[in-house]
Computed example of a mutant assay.
Amino acid sequence: MEHHGGRRGQAERDAVTVEIGYALCSAAFAAAVVFGAVAGPALAFDLPAAFSVLLVRAGLVIAAVLFAVRVVSVLLRFQRSGQPSQPGRTRPDS
């Protein structure tokens, strides 16, 4: 969003709000899926205690890292893409 000086319009603020919401929701979903895939066997089956703890902790760490990476990547991609100059219109090169 290339906005030099001045205030952002309502449409720009709404676009940023929607993008932040999308980044958080998609990151939470991806983190939950990865946590379930990594820690799921430890929660579903009767595994040795040390192995269960290892899987759950690994799932938490991987899910947290994935959450942060997903949020940052979505917001950076949004920042680089810019927005159409008029609502409802796309740029000719898009």
Rank of each mutant, 00 (worst) to 15 (best):
A68K: 08
G40Q: 07
L55P: 04
V38M: 11
R80T: 03
L55F: 04
A32K: 05
V33G: 13
A11I: 04
G6I: 00
A68C: 12
V61T: 10
F51Q: 14
H4G: 01
Q86T: 08
Y22M: 09
R7S: 11
L76W: 13
A23K: 03
G9S: 12
G40S: 07
V56S: 08
V69D: 10
G88D: 09
G82W: 08
V74F: 08
G59E: 09
C25P: 00
S52Q: 15
L60G: 13
R80P: 00
T17I: 09
A42C: 03
A37P: 00
R80V: 10
L55T: 04
A63L: 05
R57G: 10
F67K: 02
G21K: 06
E2V: 01
A23F: 05
S52D: 12
D14W: 12
Q86K: 15
A30F: 02
A39Y: 02
G82Y: 08
H3A: 05
P87C: 04
P48W: 10
I62H: 01
L43G: 13
R77P: 00
G6Q: 08
G9A: 04
G21Y: 01
L55G: 06
A27L: 03
A11V: 02
L24F: 09
D93C: 07
T17N: 11
G6S: 09
G88Y: 07
L66A: 11
E12Q: 11
V18N: 11
P41A: 09
L54S: 13
T17V: 08
R91L: 13
A28G: 04
Q79F: 14
R80L: 10
R8W: 14
G59N: 11
R70G: 00
L55N: 10
S52F: 07
G6T: 02
A39I: 05
V72N: 06
A63W: 00
S26Q: 10
G88P: 05
A31P: 02
A63G: 08
L66S: 09
E2P: 00
F29L: 15
Q86V: 12
P92C: 02
A42F: 03
R7I: 00
V69A: 14
V72Y: 13
A44H: 12
A27R: 03
V34D: 06
T90E: 14
F67Y: 14
G40F: 06
H4V: 00
A23R: 04
G21I: 01
V74Y: 05
